[in-house]
Design a protein around this nucleic acid. Structure first.
Lengths: 233, 233
DNA sequence: GTCTATACTTCGATAGAC
DNA sequence: GTCTATCGAAGTATAGAC
């Protein structure tokens, strides 16, 4: 462990400048998107000279990629550990949901960044990062599959299960500023709830969704192969 | 009905230039966001001179606002009509889901634009448009409330019901390009399903979520007032 | 209504002193 | 590692002819 060098501006420890930049840039990218973010603004936010950003990260794109790596990559390992555990699928599902949600709660910048990255067709994501993102889905899918094979879960397309969980999670948390604006507008009484309540709700939804069906009602949500109906490439 | 004037470039009907610009700009904004979109690129996409955009819309911001108005405002009326109908709440809920989903299916540019606007904290949305957006929620909330009062629906926070529906819808449809990229990467077997299957799934989720609970199990997802746990203003 | 040419600004990136 | 100064590209917007 090295001590802070006295001669350094603001008395920063080695490597601290880099971290400061990453933190500031994460917030800037989350708030304004890749195109909307300004290197000048990031530097001002971080209290760092703009040239330092290029010294450490070579380019705006390099900085952005470094941030995405740090946000997405660690998530997969945690998920894999949960899947590998020796527990009933119901518990694994709850644990998986809690782990993913906990990660997002801890990183409020993640939802806006993910929403934008999705909206942009993952333009800034290299194959490696795409794999990292899909790993989360595969973890959940394998738990769902496990439960379905043993007859403890109803048959529902794992992809739809995944989006049923991740969709509300991301949109709700990323939408907090909008809901605040609506609350200020007196447009509704209560436009928010605690993170813990959101997680409990999503776990509840998954349990009800995957509860074995009554024999009488056929399941309508089966996996289907489909042509792309969208016009954009 | 006026005929096309022969002297006009490309033989456009009056008002057609404006519509052409709107169509091209919608795709550009959906693909690259407000900041990322270029007036030059929009003009090129539309096959129109850049000056015409300023002639019709005064500014990039004006063009964007016009597009948002056209996308968001008509949605609310359809929803209100469904709520007002004399039908059991289960059917209203299904109809509401179908109407909202149908609108999004018909406008593939809507999900990316909404995701970005949410991520940006609705920076480009004026109070009027915020009200238009919240109207959709209020319609669904009143149906949920109706069903809960009559004991046909389980007690779940309407806000969470709303996000449980809209979250997967937006994220799944907006994420189609990303899933295509993942399919190309051979990262998973099937990363897609038909719109109709998605709608059926979401209706199924809502039905199961709102099905009256067994008397034995207490409902954990109640509405709560909460302080803002997020650091961004 | 349409087009050309251009003014003005912002922004990513670099050179070079310290 | 840090800072100042600046270049060049890209982008929004306008003036003015037709």
């Amino acid at each position: 462990m090295r001590a802070t060098r006295p001669g350094r501006p603001r008395g920063r420890a080695p490597g601290a400048t880099r971290d400061t930049i990453v933190a500031a840039a994460t917030r800037e990218f989350a708030a304004r998107g890749y195109a909307g973010a300004g290197v000048d603004r990031i530097a001002r936010r971080a209290g760092v000279n703009k040239a330092m950003i290029y010294y450490h990260f070579a380019s705006k794109a390099g900085l952005y990629a470094a941030i995405l790596r740090g946000l997405f990559e660690p998530a997969g390992e945690q998920a894999r550990a949960i899947v590998a555990a020796d527990r009933p699928p119901e518990e694994k599902l709850d644990a998986l949901a809690a782990a993913i949600a906990g990660r997002v709660f801890a990183h409020p910048d993640l939802p806006p960044i993910m929403m934008r990255e999705i909206a942009e067709g993952a333009r800034h994501l290299d194959p490696q990062m795409l794999r990292a993102m899909s790993g989360l889905y595969h973890s959940l899918a394998s738990v769902v599959d496990e439960g379905q094979r043993s007859g403890r879960f109803d048959r529902v397309d794992p992809l739809l299960v995944y989006f049923t969980f991740i969709g509300p999670l991301i949109l709700f948390l990323g939408g907090a500023p909008v809901r605040q604006a609506m609350t200020r507008l007196k447009v509704a009484g209560n436009w928010n709830c605690e993170p813990a309540a959101l997680l409990a709700h999503l776990q509840h939804v998954l349990r009800r969704l995957l509860a074995p069906a009554d024999a009488s009602r056929p399941c309508r949500t089966r996996l289907r192969r489909a042509p792309q109906p969208r016009r954009r490439a």
